[in-house]
């Protein structure tokens, strides 16, 4: 049974249709890549899923519930979005502490996730002094804070060096292998190809393809080729 269910979601901004009757699912124990060109509606869809954006039609559910219906949101879903991060004047530890307080997690959990992402040492420095990669790690720590069943990540590899990307890949694979659900939006197709089990490709807010990555890409046809073929129209019209 899928953990993430997006059913007929439509979102308009004035005359612009950002997401157009979009439906897809993401299953537990698997990493689902969520792909599409800039402006395809990925961030808006993730916003609808996470209760940050109101859909004009359709519904997005996690474990059968909308985000606002979840009894323990942080324990159900952890998310990292491009929009949204720590206050630059706050320390990394205090950023996580504020989120932990809101979700009823203790200081011990803050230290655990700081250790998981390798930020224990600089945790008392202000975030303004963090590199982009450190900020990403802090965002991932925030997503892991509630020990969630589902992770929704928007461009999580941004700013990570090769070692960081390998670390992230291992983290997500371990999370999925333990039964977690991962929905991963990224433009780094080579990284996606190494990481995901399933893919959902969207263009102009519509689903262009969805299924196991093996159905889209194989030894003769890379994920990049398949993706560019699928999104040629969407890219050409930009």
């Amino acid at each position: 049974m899928p953990t993430i269910t997006v059913e007929g979601v439509t979102k308009r901004y004035g005359a612009t249709v950002a997401v157009d009757d979009l439906s897809f699912t993401a299953a537990p124990g698997r990493i689902t890549g969520f792909l599409g060109p800039n402006g395809a509606g990925k961030t808006t869809t993730l916003g609808v899923l996470l209760g940050l954006v109101r859909a004009d039609a359709g519904v997005a559910r996690i474990n059968g519930h909308t985000m606002r219906e979840l009894a323990d949101p942080a324990g159900t879903v952890g998310a990292l979005l491009e929009h949204g991060g720590p206050h630059p004047g706050r320390t990394g530890r205090n950023h996580l502490r504020a989120l932990a307080l809101a979700s009823g997690r203790d200081r011990g959990r803050v230290e655990t996730v700081l250790g998981l992402v390798g930020l224990t040492e600089p945790a008392d420095k202000r975030v303004a002094g963090y590199s982009l990669g450190m900020r990403q790690r802090l965002g991932i720590a925030a997503a892991l804070l509630g020990d969630p069943q589902v992770m929704v990540l928007d461009e999580p590899a941004n700013g990570l060096d090769p070692a960081g990307m390998r670390w992230l890949r291992g983290l997500l694979r371990g999370f999925a292998d333990e039964g977690g659900t991962v929905l991963l939006s990224s433009h780094v197709l080579a990284e996606v190809a190494q990481t995901v089990d399933d893919v959902v490709v969207i263009g102009h807010g519509r689903c262009l393809a969805a299924g196991p990555i093996g159905e889209l890409a194989d030894a003769d046809r890379s994920l990049e080729d398949a993706y560019l073929d699928l999104t040629a129209d969407a890219t050409a019209m930009r």
């Binding site: 940050l52 979005l81 991060g85 720590p86 630059p88 950023h95 809101a102």
Partner: peptide, 18 residues
Amino acid sequence: TTDHRHDTIVPTLLATPR
């Protein structure tokens, strides 16, 4: 407004969607 200025409104509402 501090949450909006620095986009910390996103992690705030993810922790507390209501």
